[in-house]
């Protein structure tokens, strides 16, 4: 009797073989990068097949590793190809003239209320929307420093859990706040890179 897990695993292996076979034909560098991102999904499916809370918690690191490697490699590609051009024509729709402030503020406040990964993503969307509408001369190094300190705060939360577990409440709140700051800072910087209208 073959269990559901095995059937799932066979299907996922077939999917892995299929996505990887795309590499056999592809010669274009950018397409290879996109395919590499596509194969990540098959990898996440193998983890998801375990179907426990632990698997769910393992997917998050798996996903983040894929995204961050993609970020680094695509930046290498841009440097190698010397693609430094600024966009000439910027995207405009009416709402971008009328509501950037309020939309941005609502999203950022809602994100802060949510906190954690999701809150960070929501708040960062608000920040990017604001930057997109208003243009920006962001102080890149300042925001980068904030993000680095958020990382340190996260590590401190980890050691709170390991060394002083009775302060778990403090640790959870610190980690939730740090990840909010970290995700907002990183996402808004990455989102605003190379889109400057007036920088």
């Amino acid at each position: 009797m073959i269990s559901g897990y095995i059937i799932g695993l066979i299907v996922v292996f077939a999917g892995v073989a299929l996505t990887f076979s795309a590499f056999l034909k592809e010669r274009d560098d950018v397409h290879k990068l996109i395919l590499a991102d596509l194969t990540e999904i098959a990898g996440l499916a193998i983890i998801a097949l375990t179907a426990t809370d632990l698997a769910e918690a393992l997917i998050i690191p798996g996903l983040v590793v894929g995204i961050s490697e993609l970020l680094a490699v695509s930046e290498i590609y841009l440097t190698r190809e010397k693609l430094f051009f600024q966009p000439e024509k910027l995207f405009t729709i009416e709402v971008m003239d009328s509501a950037p402030g309020i939309m941005g503020a609502v999203l950022v406040i809602f994100g802060i209320i949510l906190s954690g990964f999701t809150g960070g993503a929501v708040a960062a969307t608000g920040m990017i929307f604001y930057f997109l509408c208003k243009g920006h001369k962001e102080r890149f190094s300042l925001v980068e420093t904030v993000s680095a300190y958020a990382w340190v705060l996260w590590i401190a939360a980890f050691f709170t859990f390991m060394l002083a577990p009775s302060y778990w409440f403090f640790g959870v709140m610190m980690a939730g706040g740090a990840i909010l700051a970290k995700v907002v800072a990183k996402m808004s910087l990455i989102g605003a890179m190379r889109g400057e209208s007036n920088a």
Binding site: A36, T39, G43, I46, I47, G62, V73
Partner: peptide
């Protein structure tokens, strides 16, 4: 390195 994470995590 990106695609190698799939067999690793898998």
């Amino acid at each position: 390195a990106i695609v190698a994470t799939i067999p690793l995590f898998g």
